[in-house]
């Protein structure tokens, strides 16, 4: 069943110079118990997508489209109702756990605050539940940790506290924006395991925003690739990594250095994507990737490709999709 349905979402920021078209006509669905990843480079619109779902965009943003959480359109909901959904049915974790936690309150109080606000628990009951939650997210000695302050915890532990807070009201959807980017790899592995574990135990659907294709390969079941504010490709994770269709996705995959896969020659190189991301203040009316694409032709440079299914469950916005063989 579809939990979260985003359709035709566009976001435009008013600035002093030119308006910036951060998102153009993005649609996707997040199913129950699913881990869906949105992947892309800086400026592709992945975080703006997360922020619009959470209703956290600044007032300079003009939003159009529809974001439906189990049928309710979050964009037209009164502020008060949105507040009762956010943190309860729809919760979030961000990249930098230190700045998302309040340094002057104990972690127990901060986890408990969510429970007191949304579930009306008493101070004592909230503390007890906070200890249970800290235990659930794998924090050792939760009875002691509950009375500690954020600065006493390591980065990985702080992110676990954020996750404890996020899942405290048993949310239907968890939005995780670069949850492991600030963490070391050995700590990242544990956090990714935890997210998968919580989905299995609590059934929370997860929308994972990341730039890291390795993280996507690790936890995501379905993947959306974004470029210059548009969705350019969508498929299941295994399908995407095995049969990428969009030249941008293929370029990204070829640009990542891979462990133990580098031939021994001294002169081997990584594949580069020539050129730069187009300016979002003057978005092109043709395929946004065309100026950087070796397959670009007259059609690509004059029209915008629609998303279409090229393989079962695999959609791509490209006039010339597929691997080199099928293309040439």
């Amino acid at each position: 069943m579809t939990l979260l349905h985003v359709s035709g979402l566009s976001v435009r920021f008013r600035t002093e110079d030119n308006p910036v078209q951060a998102l153009s006509d993005v649609s996707f669905a997040l199913e129950e118990r699913e881990i869906l990843a949105i992947v892309g480079e800086s400026g592709c619109g992945k975080s703006v997508t997360a922020m619009s779902i959470l209703g956290l965009l600044p007032s300079t943003a003009a939003i159009s489209g529809r974001i439906a959480l189990e049928g309710r359109d979050l964009l037209t909901l009164p502020r008060k109702e949105l507040r009762s959904i956010r943190g309860k049915e729809l919760s979030m974790i961000f990249q930098e756990p230190m700045t998302s936690l309040n340094p002057v309150f104990t972690v127990g109080r901060q986890v408990g605050e969510v429970l007191r606000h949304h579930e009306g628990l008493s101070r004592r009951a909230a503390r007890d539940r906070a200890i249970e939650l800290l235990d659930l997210v794998g924090i050792p000695a939760p009875q002691r940790r509950v009375d500690e302050y954020p600065h006493q915890l390591s980065g990985g532990m702080r992110q676990r506290v954020m996750i404890a807070m996020a899942v405290s009201c048993d949310p239907k959807v968890l939005i995780a924006d670069e949850p492991t980017t600030a963490l070391d790899v050995t700590i990242q592995a544990g956090i990714l395991d935890l997210m998968r574990d919580l989905r299995d135990k609590l059934g929370t659907a997860i929308l994972l925003i990341t730039h890291d294709l390795g993280v996507v390969a690790d936890v995501a079941e379905r993947v959306i690739v974004m470029y210059a504010g548009r969705k350019v490709e969508e498929a299941t994770a295994e399908e995407l990594f095995e049969h990428p269709q969009h030249p941008y996705t293929m370029g990204l995959l070829a640009a990542v250095p891979r462990l133990r896969e580098q031939p021994n020659g001294e002169r081997d190189r990584l594949a580069e994507i020539p050129g730069m991301v187009p300016s979002l203040s003057a978005p092109p009316s043709h395929c946004p990737f065309a100026p950087r694409c070796s397959r670009a032709d007259e059609l690509t440079l004059s029209e915008l490709p629609e998303l279409r299914d090229v393989r079962p469950g695999h959609a791509v916005a490209c006039f010339h999709p597929g691997d080199e063989r099928t293309y040439s």
Partner: peptide, 12 residues
């Protein structure tokens, strides 16, 4: 072993 490889099948 903690570095995730960008290949879903292999990684899993």
């Amino acid at each position: 072993s903690a570095v995730p490889v960008p290949d879903a099948k292999a990684q899993r």
